[in-house]
């Protein structure tokens, strides 16, 4: 039987809740995001997301099942599957073209954007980049190879059958490599004819569809030199693996980690808060040192070991080349067909 005291107490709580719907709303807020798996996902789930949930009094629903864009495409624009989309830059451009994400995240929405390097908010970025990797050349140190200094070193005849890159239609590192071939052997990143010709010259070449597979190929010696991002090599630091990373003198391509908000999100303020949180120096330092990504925030002070290798100064950041994904995506189907024919057989 309910006592008078219990009844009064319960009624008081119910009345207070009804009188303050914002409290109920705040407790029910859920932020839907995408994020990577692996070591990144471990740090996010163990540290970053719980701290964010505690501070912002919300819950975060994180999707790690790639690819995210087709799922976002299939959901209604006014009730999108995600509030914050985390992908590489090429996919953000696809989404922006389809009206699935915002054009820019500015310091007005996320104050820490004021402290990022120019590359993180350049005209080659939609949304805001929170980290970048440098795409260069990974190589075996036990095969008597000199440390590569140029992208042209990948074409060394000694590396026939032992050089590696990516299946261009499905991997943005492969797409970056193709554009870089246009720059090295032709008039620039958009010189596709020169790029196709150079690609033909790289045969025989082993192609994989994701960076984790390239890491395995390098570690097993299946390839002696391959296109890879610095993080994919530096993460084996201290494990006595005969692999190293080289930044070619012509520059490294940027592999940006980009966050963006969906226009139809019902929790936009929370979404901006999340992006701001990800750009905080302490969050940036934790993730940068955890997965060897170069932070976007200029104020981040990394430990010496990481600072020496990652892009943490204006001078080092100047070596980054950002592709024009809007241009690339517009002709992707033609490029896919052409490179498939070149590399088949």
């Amino acid at each position: 039987m309910i006592s008078r005291r219990t009844l009064l107490g319960t009624s008081a709580v119910a009345a207070a809740t009804l009188a303050a719907p914002s409290i109920l709303h705040a407790q029910a807020k859920t932020l839907k995001i995408t994020t990577w798996g692996g070591k990144w996902g471990e740090i996010m789930k163990a540290t970053v997301l719980p701290a964010f949930e505690k501070e912002f009094k919300c819950t975060v629903s994180a999707d790690q099942a790639f690819p995210y864009v087709p799922k976002l495409q299939a959901s209604p624009k006014n009730d999108p599957l995600y509030d914050v989309l985390h992908t590489n830059s090429n996919e953000q451009w696809n989404c922006f073209t389809e009206g699935l994400v915002m054009q820019k995240i500015t310091a007005k929405e996320a104050p820490n954007v004021a402290d990022v390097y120019p590359w993180a908010v350049s005209d080659k970025i939609v949304g805001v980049a929170i980290f970048t990797s440098a795409i260069g050349l990974g190589f075996r140190t036990d095969k008597g190879l000199a440390k590569p200094t140029s992208w042209k070193d990948l074409a060394d005849p000694k590396l026939a059958g032992a050089r590696g890159s990516y299946i261009i239609p499905v991997n943005s590192l492969g797409q970056c490599h193709l554009m870089m071939l246009g720059k090295i052997y032709g008039k620039g990143l958009q010189d596709l004819d020169a790029a196709y010709k150079a690609l033909e010259q790289l045969k025989p070449i082993k192609l994989v569809d994701f960076t984790g597979q390239m890491e395995k190929m390098l570690l097993s010696g299946e390839v002696s030199m391959g296109v890879i991002h610095d993080s994919g090599v530096y993460r084996y630091d201290g494990q006595n693996q005969p692999v190293d990373f080289a930044s070619p003198s012509e520059g490294v391509m940027a592999l940006e980690q980009v966050l963006n908000v969906t226009p139809g999100s019902k929790v936009k303020e929370l979404a901006f808060g999340y992006i701001d949180y990800m750009l905080r120096p302490d969050t940036q330092k934790l993730l940068a040192e955890g997965v060897w990504y170069s932070p976007a925030n200029k104020k981040v002070k990394l430990d010496a070991k990481y600072d020496a290798k990652l892009l943490t100064t204006e001078a080092k950041v100047a070596t980054l080349i950002q592709p024009d994904w809007k241009w690339y995506n517009a002709r992707k189907e033609d490029i896919d067909a052409r490179v498939t024919k070149i590399l088949k057989g």
Binding site: P67, V69, A74, V170, N171, I205, L207, T340, K344, G345
Partner: peptide, 26 residues
């Protein structure tokens, strides 16, 4: 076929996956 085929093998399921996952053309 994706893992074993390298550049020599291109099948329709691979093309379908490409169209959905990277060309975003369902």
């Amino acid at each position: 076929p994706s893992l074993m085929g390298g550049t020599d093998v291109l099948t329709l399921p691979m093309l379908i996956a490409q169209q959905v996952g990277t060309s975003f053309n369902p």
